[in-house]
Design a protein around this nucleic acid. Sequence first.
DNA 1: CGCCCGTACATTGTATACGAAAGGCAACAG
DNA 2: CTGTTGCCTTTCGTATACAATGTACGGGCG
Lengths: 228, 228
Amino acid sequence: MKKPQSSRPLGAAHTALFHQIYEALRDRIQSGELRPGDRLVEDRLAEDFGVSRNPVREAIRMLSADGLIEVNARRGVYIAVPDPVKIQELVEIRAVLEGHNARLAARRGNPKLLAAAGRILERGQAALIAEKTESLTRLNDEFHSALARASENESLSEMLGSMRLRSSLGFAMSDPVVQAQSWQEHAGILQAILDGDEDTAEALSRSHVLKAGDRAKERAETAAQAAS
Amino acid sequence: MKKPQSSRPLGAAHTALFHQIYEALRDRIQSGELRPGDRLVEDRLAEDFGVSRNPVREAIRMLSADGLIEVNARRGVYIAVPDPVKIQELVEIRAVLEGHNARLAARRGNPKLLAAAGRILERGQAALIAEKTESLTRLNDEFHSALARASENESLSEMLGSMRLRSSLGFAMSDPVVQAQSWQEHAGILQAILDGDEDTAEALSRSHVLKAGDRAKERAETAAQAAS
DNA sequence: CGCCCGTACATTGTATACGAAAGGCAACAG
DNA sequence: CTGTTGCCTTTCGTATACAATGTACGGGCG
């Protein structure tokens, strides 16, 4: 019997509807198509996806656990609105964890995983020069994801991924000056990791996250002033 | 119109079934009534709770997100079996976060919140002397919970709570010598926090978690030897 | 004009039914 | 005796229907 072209088992390919809906909604939230404060209505979603309400409800339970939506019992589900206090709290936690992740990556010093991070850094820098702003957000996530893998602590990697996903609601960079600075910081972090300098890697990584938090805060304040 | 005796709004008292089932199952997992590897069958649970399967399925989605159960699509749901590698990964992350939490608590130095932690410490030490082993696990969780509140970073507090819940599957202490040592460590951590000594608080807190991880590892290895 | 009450509609929560998929067991063939 | 196939039962995934709850709007009254 010939092995199927794809190496995916049939079971993995046949994903339950509730899981597919979860992923579709998560992607829409992450891409900005669904924005903070938007309402999710079960019936409408079910109609849009061409399914019954049950898998939609199950997907909503999963999204709720990710912190991406807010469920008000019997009253409706909304895309989570970033609360500035919560954002700052998450920034602080993320700074600690990203710092530790960089330390582990420097300690592990896995050439293959670090080379992968290096390639994404190059692509990010190229997108910056070419002013492909839409790519940069995705590449930013990929770079951090690659750094997370380089820690070789899978649980930490997952946790950081989850925190980045949650942060994406409050963090959106479009200013080219800011993005250039951010990628410069990426380069510094990766260099410290490649040098095996745990302390510097940790410090730069923490600082990078804290600065991003400060930038997001300023942006929120500027937007609030413009609205009044 | 007289205000109801209870200050809880009606909506908060009338909790949806799926949420009640989630909490009941989570409590059963935490208490050890449901053990790693036990199977959860939708129909049976629905019958036991006297409800239809839908809220059971929704509760299962929520428990899955907490990492307390493992869902094999179309094949069944099991209480998560602690994977030793995963446990050690989580221990490492938890050490970092608990350390940072202690630092924040020392920095904040909130007298009211720290007094609350002190009272739980006293109750823990009393239970130790009285050899009330069953209480100690609960008091241990309360003590850590109180420390988490003392950081005054709600997101960190929630995250630590979630990690403690997940860890409870792999961590169970019954040895009196070990428990005495653990509570002694609690006392040291709280003292450093009360002294406002951020560095010591962080170091002791980290160390405490790492030691607990070592103890759990030894116990798992001893159990594996006894089984063969 | 403003407030309150009632009704209608939209939405959420849950129960029931049906189909798909997986697992277990017995019988048969080599 | 071992491996394979077929059938039945159990369980999971999803659709449909019904009940409960919340919101909005219109009408009436002060």
